[in-house]
């Protein structure tokens, strides 16, 4: 058992294969219109990916997602770090964040669309909002856990406040920040899909529901598979980057979870 499970990447691959087999069997056994067999849906995957229009939609969605993610990164990390090092800043933001925490960010879509229209701005803003919260939280936790004595040594070396922040607090918080980034990335994808499902204008989420409305069930499932792969690939890619950046911290195999 140890031998095969030790080969990197093999267990998830087997898991995928197992899930597909399960799906195929369920579809054949159940005979529901709404559940086509796996092989039929998978045939549609290349069709979607080779279609210029849908590929354009997917690329557009991913672009918005990355912009929203980048904006959140630039905003949330400094805020989180400042909260972690200053009780006052933390006291200022904490109640606000607590109130925002249970608000479904993607549900703001109709309201934001009233203000900013149906274009990129609304969707990017919603993604930004969705990603910011976990990022702030994890940066905050990371900065808060920085050892006081490390900062004393830094002061003794003559670093000022900003230098201490950039050269001590930020790198020391990196492992925790990366946990936040990983959750945030998955969350960005979720918010992206959800907001497009609600707005029904363009993008991946729209393709899904348009296919559903047109009863193109194979296409619905193919799209689900594509989004699923996107989520998994983003997560794996990010885990690689994280491992490379914070090789010095103990590598915990935590799996990112989140929702918008």
């Amino acid at each position: 058992m140890r031998r095969w499970s030790a080969i990197p990447g093999l267990p998830p691959l087997l898991a995928c294969a197992g899930l597909l087999v399960l799906w195929e069997l369920a579809a054949r056994g159940a005979h529901i219109d709404g559940l086509p067999p796996a092989h039929q849906a998978l045939k549609q995957v290349p069709a979607i990916l080779l279609d210029r229009e849908s590929l354009f939609h997917i690329a557009d969605s991913v672009r918005r997602m990355l912009i929203g993610f980048a904006l959140a990164l630039a905003f949330a990390i400094p805020v989180g770090l400042a909260m972690g090092r200053s009780g006052k800043v933390a006291a200022f933001f904490n109640p606000l964040l607590m109130v925002i925490y249970p608000v479904p960010k993607a549900a703001l879509m109709p309201i934001i669309m009233l203000w900013l229209g149906v274009g990129d701005a609304s969707k990017t803003l919603v993604i930004f909002l969705g990603v910011s919260l976990p990022l702030i939280y994890h940066s905050y936790q990371g900065a808060r856990a920085v050892e006081e004595k490390m900062l004393w040594s830094a002061s003794a070396m003559g670093m000022n406040g900003l230098q201490r922040m950039m050269r001590i607090v930020f790198p020391a918080s990196l492992p925790e920040i990366f946990v936040g980034l990983r959750t945030g990335l998955v969350l960005a994808l979720i918010t992206m899909v959800t907001s497009e499902m609600i707005a029904r204008q363009a993008g991946v989420g729209n393709i899904l529901f348009n296919s559903l409305d047109m009863a193109l069930y194979d296409r619905v499932y193919a799209m689900i598979v594509i989004i699923g792969i996107l989520g998994f690939v983003l997560d794996v890619a990010f885990e690689r980057i994280r491992a490379w950046f914070v090789a010095w911290a103990d590598s915990q195999h935590q799996i990112a979870v989140g929702t918008s």
């Binding site: 998830p12 898991a15 979720i190 499902m197 689900i224 989520g231 998994f232 997560d235 929702t259």
Partner: peptide, 18 residues
């Protein structure tokens, strides 16, 4: 490991269909 990072909301159309 495979399913956790998949946006579950994408499964919603499938749930509706089934």
């Amino acid at each position: 490991r495979v399913l956790a990072p998949v946006p579950k909301i994408a499964l919603y159309p499938a749930f509706i269909l089934i």
